[in-house]
Every structure is written in structure tokens, then in C-alpha cells.
Design a protein around this nucleic acid. Structure first.
Lengths: 355, 355
DNA sequence: AGAGCTTGCTGATACGCATTAGCGCTGGAT
DNA sequence: ATCCAGCGCTAATGCGTATCAGCAAGCTCT
């Protein structure tokens, strides 16, 4: 209907200039800015009467600040699986954003206009990108497009990745989970329990989070890896296995494993089921440890011994770090790893024949 | 670091004016606007080289459009309960927004700056409201602040409510669920099964969605309601009960009910449990119908006969309607109700003694 | 009385973009 | 030689706000 009220309108109503209205609004009081109490009151009355609210767009054009934080994900933000993996991150993000008085801009549009490259794949930068509206952006997702990342690092746009990222033309600011330490601690625990041959079943995925888990499992690196991707013994107990063609149980027998670590929770659950179907007891005959959280809900969610990723906290810290970066200007990229904990579960125990 | 690239920069690089850059960018070609192919190419090359992206803020200031849709909720958008009631709405909203190339702005900040009134309560309008950034806004929540609603209706800001709302100084545009029809259908079904005394346990909440359910249960209105809130017989079978002081089972015996409808899923689940604890069979001795969806997960989620609210569809349609309103200008408020379906479950059946 | 200070405000400008009137130029028609 | 049409572009303007230099008026002090 009626055009929205502007400062000019208020100014005309009260017989002052637009500048005065702006000064009153922003409560500016200094040596070079003085407004008579009476005038101030007149303006304030008019503002209240009209319900004037400053146009955030124009305000941003001038000041360069918005108190809007972007959230970019390479998958839908609200996934169809209700109890989704990403959900806790978002809870933390929203919580901190609310405390800081920031709004969240979800870049849901990005997949549509990505004319080049993969059809429908989400991209941060495209012709109609609204990324510039946000003061800074949080990146969420297992994998982040490398070109996007390089460009983000290169340009001034403030951003923080949730999850560690390799350098992309420069260090990438992130809040990650300390997978290496957590996995190493789990290995140590397994050895204390008496396990001497522990298998690691990865996904072969390129994501940093996967590589980090493997680093924790086998801190000495890739030395000893055979042509088939099978790693040789490492400290006499660690085996990095490729996805076995004849099924996991067969591979476990072949390698005489007493414990298996699996990157994916779903794989771990499947292994427990397969093992029990074969008549093996878990953890008696085989210990199983998941290095990730369940997505969705399954019968083994509580039972499985697994890593617990501080997802809510990571989201919270990411917002914290992002706003700090926005306030403080472009310092060096902050990279922080938060410690994981362990969900004890019941699938890690001493191997049979241990006192 | 480096200031972001502007059209002026491109213009200087290519030896044209800022206006020309704008014209090339927007692919303007008309009778009064002509750019030599060579010049156009030079500009396009520079744009590609610098990776220029138009500042969405400035663009908006001119054009008044953003392709940003606001989402306002009176509760946190990402609730701690994973399988939350609001989640499906958001899934639908995101889905349609993505298809339409729109981004979503979540007004998470609103609770902080609400100095007056309830401390921490979310408000749409406050001094630092960023609602103006969005082209339009979707309202989500069981209850919507009435002052906010009146103001939204009064001002030009486009919006659509998810869920029916009573008039607020004018008709409120919404996409709701047709509770009256759905509840009436369930009553009909119960009567066909042979139930002659059906109770309705409401929450007494003021929300429109609750009132609508009751309207479906008792289409004749409030006639016959006693001082204690107990409604008299209506067509010989419908009873609107207040929360009974002596517990539901007692009230059921007292009123000789064979079926009970409950607004809240959780209440219905509790009633089933209480009934079975008393040795009643469900639905043999008592049929129980929930008029809402479970929030969270419980053992009776599948078993309970209940209303199924087309939440995803409602979110989807709300975005659809909102964008239509934005494009088409301010027409009359569109109000649409989507049909509910029924989750069959096993807690509604013929009462004992029916052939 | 004039200088100098304080008070209370305004005018101008910039932010980055879209839009439009219109200018200078060229070449063909009259 | 003059006129005009078509072409290719630019200058100017506005969107709504924040900021700041500076102006006019009144006051104090010498």
C-alpha cells in the first residue's frame, strides 16, 4: 500500500532536516553533534507515532554492516531425515546468533543458477549470489567446493568453516573436531584392552574429516601401503583395509582382527549385525567402534561404541569466531579443533582369552 | 583485504562508463539501449576476470527486490528436539525456495532487542528489525503475536502465515490445515463404527488451530456448555470435556465414553498407556484418536490413530503464495486450507458389543 | 565593539547500482 | 549543403541512510 516511512518523512513532519533525524535515531551525542532536548523529543515522538524503522538495506549500504550471518551448505539445510547429522550444528549456530542479535541467511538459492558445471550443484559464487548481503558466512558440509574456498580466502569476505579444511590458496579459518586425537585415544584404549590386530574400514572419501580419522589411527602416515590399498602392520596392530570384495566378515577372519574401526556409523552397525548373524559375539569375538555419529535412528544407536562429535559446540564456536573476525577485521585465519568425546556403548571390550 | 570490485572498477578497466557496465550486466537490449558487441565482450571479459558480482544490497536499494524470503518463528527455528513438529514445514519452505531461486532469512535476532514487554520474547518489529531486507516473510508458530500481525496487515510488507489466523485489523493471508473438515470426518468415522459417546479433550489453548479442531468436532458451536466448561450432548454423542481433576480414566467412566479425541498427541499417548494400565483394551474398551502429530518419538507413534497434517505441503504452498504476492503486488489476502489425511493406526475401532 | 566560543542545526556527499534522457558521431537521403 | 535517422554510449539522478564540515545565531569576554 503506502510507501514505507523514511527519515525524510519524519524530517518534514517535525520541521528538521533528514540529517537531524538520523542523528537522533542513532543517539549521536558528541562535541560536534548536538541536538536540543526539545527537538530530540519531537523527532522521537514522530518516530514512535509513525512506527518508523530504519531501512536495513540502506543502512547496510552505508555502514557495511548488517548483523546478518550467512549459512552455506552443500546439502539442503533442512534435510528430510529428521534426526539429521547437520541438525546439531545448526542448533548451535542459531543459539549463538540469537544471543549476539544476528539473523541467519540461508543460501538455499545457490543450486538453481549454477548454469555451468554440475547441474543443480550448489555453488557459493554465481551471477546472482546474495552472499554479499551477509557480514560473514558459515560453511557447512562434509565436502566444500575447492574453487569456492579459494575464492573466499582470496576475497575479503569473512567466513568460518565448520569442520577442518585443507589450505586453499591460504589457510582456511575453521572450527573442527579433533579426530586424530580422539581416534588415537580409542586405539590406545583398544590396545589396553588387549587387542593386537585392529582393522580400519574407511570410505575412501576425500573429505578432510575422513583423512583426519585415518591420521589418528595411523599416525605414521601412508608408509607400508600395498598396491591394493592394504596397509602393512603398523606398530604391530593397525591395518587399513580397503572395502573387501568378499565382505567384511571374510576380511576380518583373513586378517585375524579382534577389533574394527569404521568411519561410518551405518557401516559399523551393519558389521555388528553381520557378525552376530554369523554367530560371533560382540565384543567377545569382535569389537566394533564407529568413528561417526548415527544419522537417523537405528536399533544400535546406543549400543555402538563410538566417537561423539561436539556438533552443537562447533556451530556455536563458529558463530563466535565469525563475529569476532567481522568485528576485528582480517587477522590471520583462526583454526581451532574441539575435543571429541566417546560414547561408551557396549561393542568395545576385551577380546576373548584375555584375563 | 581488498575492497570488493564495483561496477566503477570494471568501467575504469575497460574504458567505459559505470552505466555501460550496468547495461551489459543486465543484458539490456532495447531500442534506446545499444552496446557494440565488441564493447560488450570487453566488459564481460573484465567481469569474468575480476569475478565481479553485483552488490545485492545496492541492487535492492534501487530495485526493491531481493529474492530473499524472511522466516519468522516465535520459537527457535532449529529446536533441540530433533524430530520436531516444525521441521516438516521448514523442509517444504526450503524446497520451494530453492526451486524459485530464493534465499531464506531466519529472524533469529528478534528476541534479544525486545526491550519492552516480555523479556526475551521474540517480536517481529523492533528498533533494529531486519525484516525490511526480505521481500516478504513467512510466519510460523502455534501462536502469533497479535500486535505484530496487525502491523503486518497494516503495512505493505508481504507475508503469509503458515496456519490459519483470525483477522487482525484485516484478513490475514495464510496457508492452513483444514482441521474442521478432518476432525468432522473422524467423528463421522467413529459414529459409523458404532460410537455413541465421544469425548473431546482440548488444551484450552487460544491458538486458532485448537479452536478449528473443536469447531470440527462440534459444528453447532458453544451452545449447551455448562458452567464447568462441560458441553451438553450434541447430536447425542459429542462431549467437550475440561481437563478432569480426577484424571481422564475417571472422567471417561463417569461420562460412559467409548471414544476420546485429544488435541495433543502426547496426551493421547498418555491416555492409551493409562487405559491399558487399568486393564482396559484399546480400542476394545476405549478408542483413542489424536488430533495432532507426535513431536519427538514415542513408542505409540505408529499405533495411535491420528490426524496427519500436510506440513511439508503447507510450507511449500506458503512460499508459493508469498512469491506470488510479491510479484503480483498487494491483491486481496489469499487464504487457503489444505486437506489433512488420517494416519490409520490401531486405536480407533468398534466399541465392544458391536456386531 | 570585535574576537572567540558554544550551541543547534543543515547541506553536501558517499555508498553501489539501475535507469533514462540525451549527446556526439556517422552515413545516407534530400 | 543540409537534414535526419540510427548508433553507441555517457552524464545525471535517485534509492535511504550515515557522516561530517561548516554555518548562523547567541553568548561571553576583553
Amino acid at each position: 500500500m503506502s510507501r514505507r516511512v523514511t527519515q525524510r518523512d519524519i524530517a518534514r513532519m517535525t520541521g528538521v532536516s533528514q540529517a537531524t533525524v538520523s542523528l537522533v535515531l542513532n543517539n549521536r551525542t558528541g562535541d560536534d553533534v548536538r541536538i536540543a532536548p526539545e527537538t530530540r523529543q519531537r523527532v522521537l515522538d514522530a518516530i514512535r507515532a509513525t512506527g518508523y524503522v530504519a531501512d536495513p538495506v540502506a543502512r547496510r549500504l552505508v555502514s557495511g554492516r548488517n548483523r546478518i550471518l550467512g549459512v552455506f551448505t552443500y546439502e539442503p539445510v533442512f534435510p528430510s531425515t529428521a534426526a539429521d547429522f547437520y541438525h546439531p550444528f545448526l542448533v548451535g549456530i542459531e543459539q549463538r546468533a540469537e544471543q549476539l542479535g544476528c539473523d541467519l541467511l540461508l543460501f538455499t538459492s545457490s543450486s538453481q543458477l549454477a548454469g555451468e558445471g554440475g547441474a543443480g550443484r550448489r555453488r557459493i559464487f554465481h551471477a546472482d549470489s546474495r552472499i554479499g548481503i551477509a557480514d560473514g558466512t558459515i560453511l557447512l558440509g562434509r565436502r566444500v567446493d575447492r574453487d569456492d574456498l579459494v575464492r573466499l580466502v582470496g576475497e575479503g569476505h569473512a567466513f568460518v568453516s565448520v569442520g577442518r579444511r585443507d589450505d586453499a590458496g591460504g589457510p582456511v579459518p575453521y572450527v573442527g573436531a579433533d579426530y586424530p586425537a580422539a581416534v588415537a585415544a580409542l586405539v590406545e584404549r583398544a590396545r589396553e584392552l588387549g587387542h593386537t590386530r585392529i582393522g580400519y574400514l574407511g570410505t575412501g572419501g576425500p573429505a578432510e574429516s575422513h583423512a583426519d580419522r585415518l591420521r589418528g589411527f595411523r599416525p605414521t602416515g601412508d608408509a607400508g601401503e600395498g598396491d591394493d590399498g592394504t596397509a602393512g602392520d603398523d606398530e604391530g596392530c593397525r591395518l587399513h583395509l580397503p572395502p573387501p570384495a568378499d565382505g567384511w566378515p571374510a576380511a576380518i577372519e583373513r586378517e585375524r582382527l579382534t577389533a574394527v574401526f569404521l568411519e561410518e556409523h551405518a557401516d559399523a552397525a551393519a558389521l555388528v549385525a553381520a557378525a552376530r548373524a554369523r554367530g560371533w559375539s560382540v565384543p567377545g569375538d569382535l569389537s566394533v567402534v564407529a568413528l561417526g555419529e548415527p544419522s537417523g535412528t537405528g536399533p544400535l544407536d546406543e549400543a555402538l561404541t563410538r566417537l561423539r562429535i561436539p556438533r552443537r559446540e562447533m556451530g556455536w564456536q563458529a558463530v563466535e569466531q565469525l563475529t569476532a573476525a567481522i568485528e576485528g577485521g582480517a587477522g590471520p585465519a583462526v583454526q581451532r579443533l574441539l575435543p571429541c568425546t566417546v560414547h561408551a556403548g557396549t561393542t568395545l571390550g576385551p577380546p576373548r582369552g584375555t584375563p
